[in-house]
């Protein structure tokens, strides 16, 4: 390929991501006539350019919306997005939420190295709390964004977590993601030895791989979510959540005659002053509005005066009479 040699440092995990994705693409027969690669900005954003495909290198964070659009305009093409955690989850976080919601049939491969590598090693959205980076010299103060937890909250979803060290598992995840009908996201835990690993105390990339092996273990079978130390695939087919049933409370009607009679003069006393309750009359019945959140100081229910017959007022009000029916009946107007 004429664009090689690539720009990545020796020991970087991105080469492994690129190679394995490319190998699975070839196994599946996906080539430049039926596949387009999209990426964002950063070291990992350079991945699409090294593929033997038409590739799109978008502005920072916009890989997903570009990939989705290509799939929309050309449903016959396979579209893959290759990018990093900073690009997809930080600056492109809004697109991650909404593209996954719209569920286009694209596969996303996220090189998750927990650092902004290209710019020199600043803290990223997935940098673990306490990690020292160029922009968190005293240790990253915030908890990292758990992409897996966000993406597995709303079905349908496909979220796989794997590492560049667990190669067979990694390739299985890539294949499953490419074949998934819908939005699939593969979170590939990767290493940045030069701009993160050495600061963490690792001498070689291999030591970082062994660290991945210590931190994570593979779980088999279909899951609906993954714990933070698990590598595997969490997926769910589309399912609509059952609509919450509206519970209608049926109150027993009290016969009007049995209610306490109020005259207009009596009603005037119940205007909310001096701790008295707020009563109003509507169509011959007296209601107790003391619990209304619209009670704004003495005598006043926003637009209506307490202690009066409001039948006419409510008829011309922009709201319906149902607002009044919510409150308990305490008497009848005589």
């Amino acid at each position: 390929m004429r664009r090689f040699p690539h720009t990545w440092c020796p020991g970087c995990g991105i080469g492994s991501v690129l190679k394995n994705v490319a190998m699975v693409l070839r196994e599946l027969g996906w080539n430049y006539q039926n596949t387009v690669a999209v990426s964002g900005i950063g070291c990992s954003g350079r991945m699409s350019g090294y593929m033997n495909l038409d590739a799109l290198h978008t502005p920072h964070g916009r890989a997903l919306i570009a990939a989705e659009t290509i799939k929309t305009v050309r449903p016959d093409l396979n579209v893959i997005a290759l990018s990093g955690d900073g690009d997809l989850a930080s600056i492109g976080g809004n697109h991650l939420l909404h593209t996954s919601r719209r569920n286009p049939n694209i596969a996303v491969f996220c090189n998750d190295n927990e650092i902004y590598g290209l710019t020199g090693g600043q803290a990223g959205p997935t940098t673990p709390k306490g990690t020292k980076t160029l922009t968190s010299p005293g240790g990253e103060p915030y908890l990292p964004l758990r992409i897996g937890r966000i993406l597995t909250q709303q079905a349908p979803y496909f979220y796989a977590r794997t590492t560049v060290y667990h190669l067979n598992h990694f390739k299985d995840c890539i294949r499953e993601a490419l074949l998934w009908k819908g939005f699939s996201f593969v979170d590939i835990i990767s290493d940045c030895i030069e701009l993160n690993g050495r600061r963490l105390g690792f001498k070689t990339a291999h030591q970082m791989f062994k660290w991945f092996d210590e931190r994570f273990h593979i779980v088999e079978g279909v899951r609906d979510h993954l714990e933070e130390d698990e590598l595997g695939i969490a997926k769910a087919e589309g399912e609509e959540l059952p609509k919450p049933k509206e519970e209608v409370e049926v109150k027993a009607e009290v016969p009007t005659e049995a209610l306490r009679p109020f005259s207009l003069e009596e009603l005037k006393n119940f205007d909310g002053t001096e701790g008295r309750p707020i009563y109003i009359a509507y169509k011959g019945k007296v209601y107790d509005l003391s619990t209304s959140p619209l009670y704004q100081g003495e005598k006043r229910m926003r637009c209506h005066i307490a202690g009066k017959d409001l039948t006419k007022d409510i008829e011309i009000a922009p709201h319906g009479e149902d607002l009044v029916f919510k409150f308990p009946v305490v008497g009848r107007l005589v």
Partner: peptide
């Protein structure tokens, strides 16, 4: 259009 070659569209 896309899907016909090995071009790189980059900013």
């Amino acid at each position: 259009p896309l899907g016909t070659g090995q071009r790189l569209f980059t900013g």
